[in-house]
Amino acid sequence: MKMLRIILVFLSFSMEIHVEAEWVTLLNQAALIQYPADCVEVCGYKTFPLRKYTIEEGKRKITLGSDTIILKKASEIYAFVSGEALFKGVVAIELPVGMLKVEDEKSLIYVSKRDDKYLVRTLLGAVKVEPKGAAKGVEIPQGYENTISGVIVNGFAEVGFPISIDANEMIYKWASMYDGSKKQFAAEVAVFKEIHARARNEISQVYTEISERMIASHNEQMEKEKIRREKDRRERAALQRMYERKVMGLE
């Protein structure tokens, strides 16, 4: 009888675990969905939540993060719709706010949409940004990140100031999207760290220069303000004298 009880308890646990396992498998059955289902030229791709997927086309590799949507418009042109993605190889990425062009095969760039802004990070190689409406494009050198936001009153999309990549956050994201071996990832991260250190060094010099310029500009402004105040004071004194002459002199 005791034996039977033990068996019954064991059976009830096994059945519970079995049902749980089936549910998890069901939810994560697919990693990528494409639309239209049988598309050839123009295709929309979407990853499921908590899943990633890598699309390989020759030397080009596009890794889509969780819940990401991209649209393939032509052989080398993709429209980035939402989420986050890593693009490796020659590719042109269309955004509502402009176009990103990668011309180096070894380039690796990260694109994500954050609120109304598009964040572009160049892990390896540079990317050319053509903001919508702007006469000239800008380049994001390797190791830097920049944001592109909507068209402003001047009639062109606004590109932010380049800064060195937030390495801690990026490596964490990269690791979650990486589909190769750990050893391979460690080697790629080592290369990225060198690039990042160089970029950080460069940007610190730029910031030093900018802050020096700002201080100089502030000092100049203070000097101008001092001159203006002195001029105002002299003008007020002259006016005061005029009032005194008029009233005291009984004009």
Partner: peptide, 25 residues
């Protein structure tokens, strides 16, 4: 998920058009 792709792409196209309008406005 297919519906989500459709609506997201439609929103993307709308955003694209809005940016084009803002550019010439």
């Amino acid at each position: 998920e297919q519906e989500k792709i459709k609506s997201s792409i439609a929103y993307y196209e709308l955003e694209n058009m809005r940016q084009n309008v803002a550019m010439v406005l």
